[in-house]
Amino acid sequence: MSKSLLKRFEWKDKLLALIVPLLVLVAWQSAVSLQLFSEMILVPPLTVMNTLVDLARTGDLTNNIISSLKRVLSGFLLGASTGFFLGLLMGLSSLLDRFVGPLIKACKQVPQFALMPLIILWFGIDEVSKVVFISIGAFFPMVFNTYQGVSGVPKKYRELARVFNYKSFRYLTKVILPGALPSIITGVRHSLGLSWMFVVGAELFGSESGVGYMMVWARQLFQIDIVMAGLFVIGIIGFTMNIILQIIEKRVLRWRVSFDGRMA
């Protein structure tokens, strides 16, 4: 929905959209100038920008971003692909759905962060446990959305495939998967969003690299500029991921875009 809002924006709306960020900046800067807070609590916006540039220049930032992205990518791929296949199978087989479905729903009740200590006990505190943790975050939205999409393909299309003698593979690729695609893409988006949150969580929890690690470390040294820069970076990365997915969604779901003239 945010995109449809953004898309309809005219230049006037763009100006309106700048009001709040500008106010925040002004308030921020004046709070610093009036010395309302100590240096340890609030630094000028410009300092944060400078810190960001410095971090980028030394290569620290890039390295941390790369290791976070590596984690998020492997965790996401692992979790989302498992979720996709399980959701697909559950959507196709009511037997599997009846056996596995309630189990997965029960597992979803566990707030996934509670599993972090458990995962560390199982896999140690290194890279593997982080990837597993992220993949758990990625798994759930994917399995539910794929399942919903697959079981939601209208009966009339299934019937049509029967009339034309569609066998399993063609049935899957021409009817079921395209029909489930909108829901699957929603799953991918949620899944990637959660992966990104989970990687930050995992890195805050204990790590030797990554943007989250950079923030924890800076917090312990009372370098608030780095903490804020880190916050900015994870926001930008999250935003970029979302934009990329929207572009993919728009391309893949062309048939639907023209249908209602806007993205869901």
């Binding site: 945010s2 924006f9 903490v227 880190g230 916050l231 994870i234 926001g235 935003f239 979302n242």
Partner: peptide, 24 residues
Amino acid sequence: KIFAPFFHALRQVPMIGWIPLIVM
């Protein structure tokens, strides 16, 4: 028009990410 864009931008920051700042 005034608040939604900022809200959506802020939403992109994973909630967990706020923890270090808020703790400081």
